[in-house]
Design a protein around this nucleic acid. Structure first.
Length: 364
DNA sequence: AAACCGGGGCA
DNA sequence: TGCCCAGGTTT
């Protein structure tokens, strides 16, 4: 008789996987002093393991401990960093080494807050160092971990979002139930780097394939959710529909070659952006309409402001407000009077065509 | 061209 | 505190 299966906890399954399949022979995985772990973590923030190995070994040979690093001049340090990119991090590394020597007598601090006060060390890096070198149970949340957890939980929101990130930190903490925090930390990064990869994850080899939401629901390709496209700025335009009284002749202008709808015939438009801090376009728009109409030989009585509608370009939303008004004289500017039917056959921009059609329907 | 990456910096 | 960006690399 088989005993009912007791599901092992996340941490234990991760560690079992790590013990059997993880990498254990990387240069920073022996003699795990805060200094050595720190240098590896900083290098690994930006570069793949296989590239880091060589750099790390050369770096350690030249700067075997934190005081050797602190004593060197920045130029020398950066020479050993050359090729890794992100030189600000190389400079921070050097600065932090000097701080550790000066402020801490050459011993790294052992609390999260003190560690995070060092330049170039944020929460995730600080936690990694303390977990790996001092067995403190502090969760990390780097790109690997975010990916693993987002898939495991089937997280439907983008990890860069405030609330999501907060939830991920809590989750990372809750799942880290182990008496081997150092190995756990390396294990989860290793899993993310070798199995739960960004594309083409090797789910067959994953210890969580039986209960990973992403795998079970075939969402590994779409999780973690990508950063939403940057929200497009909203801009505004008044579209002038000048027409001859009691007829269907309207005023068209040719757009400049450069810019949106370059060279096309269109209705004259007035672009405007809202003043700093203003959200409501109404006032600004009214003002612009007033100024415009006052410059024309007409009474405002026949002016019609149509409903504002949105047209979206690749890089911004344009809120367009058509304003129609009968005119007896041509407005100033390069343009011509055209019969509506003619206008519509000139290949106007789609939203402009829409405006004219709508006006025609309501006007005639 | 666009996504990604942890930390820093700023309101 | 919360949000966004600099400075790069990778896809």
């Amino acid at each position: 008789m088989s005993k009912p299966e007791t599901k092992q906890c996340f941490a234990q399954r991760l560690l079992d996987w790590f013990d059997q399949h993880g990498r254990h022979d990387l240069p920073w995985q022996h003699n795990k002093t805060p200094y050595r772990v720190w240098v590896s973590e900083i290098m690994l923030q930006q570069t793949q393991v296989k590239t880091v190995i060589d750099y790390y070994q050369r770096f350690m040979q030249r700067f075997p401990d934190v005081s050797a690093l602190a004593d060197a001049d920045q130029e020398t340090v950066l020479a050993y960093w050359a090729g890794l990119g992100y030189y600000a991090r190389g400079r921070n590394l050097h600065k932090a080494a000097q701080t550790v020597v000066k402020e801490w007598g050459g011993e790294f601090p052992q609390t999260l807050t003190e560690m995070m006060a060092l330049p170039g060390i944020g929460r995730s890096t600080a936690s990694a160092i303390l977990a790996i070198s001092h067995q403190q149970r502090l969760p990390i949340l780097d790109g690997n971990v975010k990916r693993v957890l987002a898939r495991y939980d089937g997280l439907p929101t983008w990890p860069g979002e405030r609330a999501t990130e907060k939830a991920l930190w809590l989750r990372a903490d809750a799942l880290m139930q182990t008496d081997r925090p150092g190995d756990y930390t390396q294990a989860i990064m290793d899993l993310g780097a070798t199995v739960c990869t960004r594309q083409r994850p090797v789910c067959e080899q994953c210890p969580f394939k039986s209960d990973c939401v992403a795998f079970q629901t075939d969402q590994t390709a779409t999780l973690p959710k990508r950063k939403p496209k940057k929200t497009k700025p909203v801009r505004h335009a008044i579209v002038w529909l000048w027409h001859q009284a009691d007829s269907d002749w309207i005023w068209l202008e040719r757009r400049p070659e450069q810019g949106i709808w370059g060279g096309l015939w269109s209705l004259p438009e007035t672009r405007f952006d809202l003043p700093e801090g203003e959200i409501e376009p109404h006032k600004t728009r009214q003002n612009l309409i007033k100024i415009k109409v006052e410059s024309l030989p007409v009474a405002t009585g026949d002016l019609i402001e149509w409903t504002t509608f949105q047209h979206t370009f690749s890089h911004y939303h344009l809120m367009m407000t058509p304003v129609s008004l009968p005119l007896s004289h041509a407005p100033q500017g390069e343009g011509q009077w055209v019969k509506v039917t003619q206008a519509l056959s000139r290949g106007l921009p789609a939203p402009i065509q829409k405006v004219i059609t709508q006006w025609e329907v309501n006007h005639v």
